[in-house]
Simulated assay, not measured.
Amino acid sequence: MKTTTRFNQAIEKLYKAFHNNTLNPECCNQCAVGNILDNTDAWKHLSDFHGATQLNYLGLVHQNLGRKFNGYSPIELLQIEATFLKACGYTLPLHHTHKKPKRTPENLFNGLEAVVKLLCKFDNVPNVMDCSILFDYKSEKSKTIQLV
């Protein structure tokens, strides 16, 4: 399967962060986007709240100028982070009054799985986390779609 450079680099960074226990949803340097952007937090200035999917003025300027950060546009970065946080069990946007889920390997894996699915969608490649292909399995939903 042919993938993009940005996809390969992002997956490699997320994989390393997960296995090195340096993936922290509440830290802008160590969250999904922080890791994709080489453990920097400059991306947090693209929106007003961590986990928000709406660009602020600065984010809109970068988006409208066509800027990319390690291959990803500002809106893609916000979508990646929101997807990660939501799949980890957080209420968005992050706020100190919201209930925080425990930072367990299972929650982090769920977040990564959702991010990988989104990255595949961005680059129009099959979901590399979908193991049904390995077992030649088709869900009832996909069988119904094929019959119609």
Score class of each variant (00 low, 15 high):
residue 90 Y to C: 10
residue 77 L to E: 01
residue 45 H to G: 13
residue 62 H to Y: 15
residue 95 H to W: 01
residue 63 Q to F: 08
residue 64 N to V: 06
residue 42 A to I: 10
residue 87 A to V: 10
residue 75 I to V: 15
residue 94 L to Y: 03
residue 73 S to M: 09
residue 81 E to R: 03
residue 63 Q to M: 14
residue 53 T to K: 05
residue 94 L to T: 01
residue 88 C to G: 01
residue 68 K to P: 02
residue 63 Q to I: 11
residue 61 V to P: 04
residue 46 L to T: 03
residue 72 Y to Q: 03
residue 67 R to H: 15
residue 47 S to Q: 00
residue 51 G to L: 11
residue 86 K to H: 13
residue 77 L to I: 06
residue 89 G to K: 13
residue 93 P to A: 06
residue 73 S to R: 13
residue 70 N to Q: 15
residue 44 K to P: 05
residue 98 H to A: 15
residue 47 S to I: 07
residue 57 Y to L: 15
residue 95 H to A: 02
residue 98 H to Q: 14
residue 74 P to N: 06
residue 59 G to Y: 02
residue 78 L to A: 06
residue 74 P to A: 07
residue 47 S to V: 05
residue 67 R to L: 13
residue 60 L to Y: 12
residue 84 F to R: 04
residue 88 C to T: 11
residue 80 I to D: 03
residue 51 G to P: 06
residue 49 F to N: 11
residue 75 I to R: 03
residue 97 T to F: 09
residue 65 L to C: 08
residue 54 Q to V: 13
residue 97 T to Q: 12
residue 43 W to G: 00
residue 91 T to G: 00
residue 46 L to G: 06
residue 44 K to S: 10
residue 94 L to G: 01
residue 56 N to L: 05
residue 60 L to P: 05
residue 69 F to K: 00
residue 88 C to W: 09
residue 43 W to D: 00
residue 71 G to L: 02
residue 89 G to N: 07
residue 85 L to R: 11
residue 95 H to Y: 00
residue 83 T to L: 10
residue 63 Q to V: 12
residue 59 G to W: 10
residue 66 G to K: 06
residue 46 L to D: 01
residue 67 R to T: 06
residue 84 F to I: 02
residue 61 V to A: 08
residue 64 N to E: 12
residue 52 A to K: 08
residue 52 A to Y: 07
residue 79 Q to H: 12
residue 77 L to S: 04
residue 66 G to M: 01
residue 77 L to V: 07
residue 59 G to E: 00
residue 62 H to P: 00
residue 63 Q to Y: 10
residue 93 P to V: 06
residue 73 S to Q: 06
residue 97 T to W: 08
residue 62 H to T: 05
residue 64 N to P: 04
residue 81 E to T: 07
residue 94 L to H: 03
residue 64 N to Q: 15
residue 78 L to F: 09
residue 91 T to F: 05
residue 72 Y to C: 09
residue 95 H to G: 02
residue 62 H to V: 07
residue 95 H to S: 04
residue 58 L to E: 09
residue 82 A to F: 00
residue 49 F to E: 10
